[in-house]
């Protein structure tokens, strides 16, 4: 986790330095704010990863001498196939189209989003196949 943390930290600190230089040199607030926000986007994940790095033992994927046997067990639960991402995508598409063609498509779109999001959540809680 150390390298992951340092990648984000490095980007955050670098952009923070650029922000300070830009702010005092250009004296332009819009660009400085965007750069400051970008520095935050680097530093926030860095804080999260750094917090976990201190509290975790090195994982097998962080250890150069680790063997496959050291990480035996379930990697995770992966759905094989499910219709709900497709339904959710179509719902988002119809909802977005309402910005162009009026609210009628949003009625169907939002209904599909609610149905698909609820069903996908229940599906993952059940843990069963689709």
């Amino acid at each position: 986790m150390k390298v992951e943390y340092r990648v984000y930290l490095g980007i955050g600190i670098f952009v923070l330095i650029v922000t300070v230089v830009y702010f005092f040199w250009a004296k332009e607030y819009g660009g400085a704010m965007m750069l400051f926000g970008t520095a935050g986007l680097g530093l926030l994940p860095a804080l999260y990863l750094g917090w976990w790095k201190r509290r975790m033992e090195p994982r097998p994927e962080d250890v150069e001498e680790a063997t496959v046997a050291e990480n035996r067990g379930a990697v995770g639960a992966f759905p094989d196939h499910t219709i709900f991402p497709f339904v959710l995508g179509i719902g988002a598409f119809l909802t977005a189209l309402s910005l162009v063609f009026g609210p009628s498509t949003a009625v169907i779109g939002l209904a599909l989003i609610v149905f698909a999001a609820t069903s996908a959540t229940l599906e993952s809680r059940r843990g069963g196949t689709v």
Binding site: V75, G89, I90, A96
Partner: peptide
């Protein structure tokens, strides 16, 4: 050496948003 992406459903949703 991973068996799939970390969030497979989100991955599928990404594709449908791209296509639409």
């Amino acid at each position: 050496g991973a068996p799939d992406m970390a969030f497979p459903r989100l991955n599928a949703l990404s594709y449908w948003l791209y296509l639409t």
